[in-house]
Design a protein around this nucleic acid. Structure first.
Lengths: 341, 341
DNA sequence: ATGAAAGCGCTAACAG
DNA sequence: CTGTTAGCGCTTTCAT
């Protein structure tokens, strides 16, 4: 007995469709059809091929398929900062939708840098069929250039010419401002996010508008970074501002701010009310638990993935902006103004 | 002037190395060399090729490269449950290390199911050069079968024949048990994780051993799921057990348990001390803030990625288990036993 | 229903 | 240093 009979478990034994073809006594093209186009081959040969493939422990070579078909069955997901728990929901739901259609998700991290983001996007887009950009910081022009190559969907930012899914802050913000105004607050401070963040600008607009409508003063202050620590660093300024309520660009900042304020002896919400943005995981762990304007991030993720996947199937669509509604989640960190009767 | 002169921005104009070769008046193979093997080509042609590539807006076809070279420059990362914030650190650090070497990370989610996990792993492994399995639930045999195909590293589980990086609970647990025993606790309950979880078993062993050493009683109770809600459901049983201290399989369970216990009027840590596992994001948001045995997950991620990447470079190594140390993080949720003087 | 043959875009010997 | 020549493993006309 020859020693080189194909052992089922050889560490490097890569079986190809040619091996199957030979073993089964058919043509390679038949094997291909049997495996990926069942129905275009007789039931009998089909079984034969399937069994032989099984025996040979055949795994289709993804690169070869991709080269031939032009599709890698992969979606890219590029987040602006992977340490932001925000993105969990997006990741999970986008992944779920992708998996349903036998797609995989390749992750990229921009680490809060527009330059890193761009290079990561360029690297990613070569290997995927479509790309989801979460809170992209790059220029509109670069965004559109990318979109000219492959299908691109942006989350948390609106850009003409490309598909977007963005939470509309208006509803949640107006709920929050009405709540605060109704509780006697006269002045609301908005702690802004990164200067380049489109979403931060959008949120400030919403706050500003809602305040005007409710006849309360709105003031915007800048931050150093949209993190817990960035929030902490705002405490002094905010205390000095004399505002009795603050809305932050995100929950991380709100949590840092709240801790720092409490550390300085200010009671929340008695002395100052705090409302965050995004309702991240852990927002309800704090004391008092954090009120927040929730963006349905999971929905954004599944919508974005769906948009891409559908674009492969159906007829080409005009780029569109999908708006999803935000919603105020009231918890313990917001309440009556201290000067209220 | 002919209308079909290659427009730099045509939506579907995919330039190949042949286009570059023709345009630059050199051979395709020279283009290939110039682009991916600079140094094996004259500086002059190199520049010529690079410029032409730029002008033609050339993007190398990843699938073709992968087919030829046998390497996709992608790493798979399969987590047992993507909703678990635990895995953030792993993801981030593994991604960082991968990116350094021009690798991308493809994410997979097992959604806590061994079956889903296996099929996800099988799908992933076809498209990546190496696979990181985080807290895998599949059988040892399946694990080894996968490892026979491509380089595989497991995190949070030890299996003979494959590379592993696992946090060793002993150090952190013994710190925790000594702390609790020193504070007068006579009986410690361990709230176990999923039955199939290798790590849960490992942690229980550590607790059991440490308790014996410290002459305190250890009791293990089962849980329904390793989540906040799973923790909540344990409250009744744990209260009934009469234990004054509990160590949970993870922080999520600890947080759920703590909330439920507090809701039932038990003060933490006065009536009962709680110690979690993993020190997840948000562990310090609770009131009292959660004590936890921290696993250096980020380090696990970078180590795992490093193990894989190095295996491509150097000479083949024997599979090895890398142990990383855990550490007790004492916060407000653990203190003196209520019966202590 | 199946076989034959032609590539997909790139890299890698091997010559020269 | 550069051109020639084969493929990598698969899908897909086009015949039969």
């Amino acid at each position: 007995m020859p020693a080189d009979e194909s052992p089922v478990q050889t560490k490097k034994a890569k079986a190809t469709i040619y091996d199957i073809a030979q073993q089964a006594g058919v043509n390679p093209s038949t094997v291909s059809r049997a495996l990926s186009n069942p129905g275009r081959v007789s039931p009998r040969t089909r079984r034969l091929v399937e069994i032989t493939a099984e025996v040979l422990n055949f795994k289709a070579n993804h690169s070869a398929q991709a080269l031939q078909t032009g599709s890698t069955r992969m979606l890219g997901l590029l987040v602006s900062d992977i340490t932001n728990p925000n993105f969990f929901g997006i990741l999970r739901e986008a992944g779920r939708v992708a998996t349903q259609q036998q797609y995989s998700v390749v992750l990229g991290n921009a680490a809060e840098s527009a330059a890193t983001e761009l290079s990561a996007a360029r690297r990613l887009i070569k290997t995927v069929d479509g790309l989801i950009l979460v809170s992209p910081r790059m220029s509109e022009n670069n965004l559109q250039l990318l979109a000219a190559t492959k299908k691109v969907v942006a989350i948390n930012r609106e850009v003409s010419g490309i598909d977007c899914v963005v939470p509309d802050p208006d509803r949640g913000v107006s709920q929050a401002v009405r709540f605060l105004a109704g509780n006697g607050h006269q002045k609301i401070v908005f702690a802004a996010g990164p200067e380049m963040s489109w979403m931060s600008a959008r949120r400030w607009d919403a706050v500003s508008d809602a305040c005007e409508w409710c006849h309360v003063t709105a003031e915007r202050i800048e931050s150093t970074s949209p993190t817990i620590d960035g929030g902490r660093k705002l405490a002094r300024t905010i205390k000095a501002s004399g505002a009795t309520a603050v809305i932050t660009h995100n929950d991380l900042m709100a949590i840092g701010l709240m801790h720092e304020l409490q550390g300085a002896g200010m009671a929340v919400p008695e002395a100052i009310s705090i409302v965050g943005f995004d309702d991240i995981f852990g927002a309800d762990f704090t004391t008092p638990s954090l009120s927040s304007i929730r963006s349905p991030l999971g929905e954004c993720g599944s919508l974005a993935a769906g948009l891409i996947l559908n674009s492969f199937a159906g007829t080409p669509q005009e780029p569109k902006s999908v708006m999803v509604d935000t919603e105020l989640v009231i918890r313990g960190s917001a309440g009556p103004a201290r000067s209220a009767p």
